[in-house]
Computed example of a mutant assay.
Amino acid sequence: MTDLRRTRLLIIGSGPAGYTAAVYGARAALNPVLVEGLQPGGQLTITTDVENWPGETAIMGPELMAKMRAQAEHLGVDLVSDIIVDVDFSRRPFRCTADSGMVFEADSVIIATGAQARWLGLDSETKLRGKGVSACATCDGFFFRGKHVAVVGGGNSAVEEALFLTNFASKVTLIHRRDTLRADKINQKRLLENPKVVPVWNATVADVIGSDSVTGLVLEDTRTGQKSEMAVDGLFIAIGHDPATALFRGKLDMDPEGYLLTAPDSTATSVPGVFAAGDVKDKTYRQAVTAAGMGCMAALEAERFLGHASAAGSA
Results as ranks from 00 to 15, higher is better:
232 V>M: 14
259 Y>F: 14
202 N>C: 15
125 E>T: 03
112 A>S: 11
183 A>S: 06
120 L>S: 11
14 S>Y: 08
107 D>T: 04
135 A>K: 05
58 A>S: 14
291 A>C: 05
16 P>I: 00
215 T>Y: 04
188 Q>E: 15
200 V>D: 04
94 F>K: 04
277 A>C: 03
108 S>Q: 06
35 V>Q: 06
263 A>S: 12
136 C>A: 06
273 G>A: 10
229 E>Q: 01
85 V>T: 12
157 S>Y: 00
29 A>W: 13
102 M>A: 13
166 T>W: 10
180 T>C: 01
112 A>D: 08
66 A>F: 12
291 A>H: 14
159 V>W: 06
162 A>W: 04
168 F>Q: 03
46 I>V: 15
150 A>L: 00
129 R>Y: 09
150 A>W: 01
260 L>Y: 10
19 Y>H: 05
300 L>Y: 15
53 W>N: 02
37 G>Q: 00
58 A>V: 15
7 T>E: 13
61 G>Q: 08
30 L>W: 12
301 E>I: 07
118 R>T: 08
212 D>H: 14
271 V>L: 11
35 V>K: 06
77 V>K: 08
191 L>M: 15
215 T>M: 09
132 G>W: 10
51 E>Y: 07
100 S>R: 01
308 H>I: 14
85 V>G: 04
73 E>I: 14
27 R>T: 13
64 L>K: 15
269 T>K: 05
172 V>I: 03
17 A>Y: 09
84 I>F: 00
245 T>H: 03
226 Q>P: 02
306 L>R: 11
113 T>H: 00
105 E>V: 04
291 A>Q: 09
139 C>R: 05
259 Y>M: 05
267 T>I: 11
163 L>M: 04
211 S>G: 10
246 A>V: 10
128 L>N: 05
217 L>P: 02
134 S>H: 10
192 L>N: 06
94 F>P: 04
272 P>G: 10
313 G>F: 11
8 R>M: 08
72 A>C: 14
137 A>E: 05
192 L>C: 03
36 E>R: 11
87 V>G: 00
262 T>L: 10
24 Y>D: 06
200 V>T: 07
274 V>Q: 06
82 D>C: 04
232 V>K: 13
109 V>Q: 01
145 R>S: 09
61 G>P: 12
193 E>C: 04
227 K>C: 01
168 F>G: 01
129 R>G: 07
106 A>M: 07
34 L>W: 14
308 H>D: 15
87 V>N: 05
301 E>Y: 12
176 H>T: 08
220 E>V: 14
105 E>P: 01
235 L>M: 11
207 D>Q: 13
23 V>H: 12
26 A>F: 06
234 G>T: 02
104 F>Y: 15
249 R>I: 02
33 V>Y: 12
183 A>C: 02
186 I>R: 12
142 F>H: 14
309 A>K: 13
90 S>M: 05
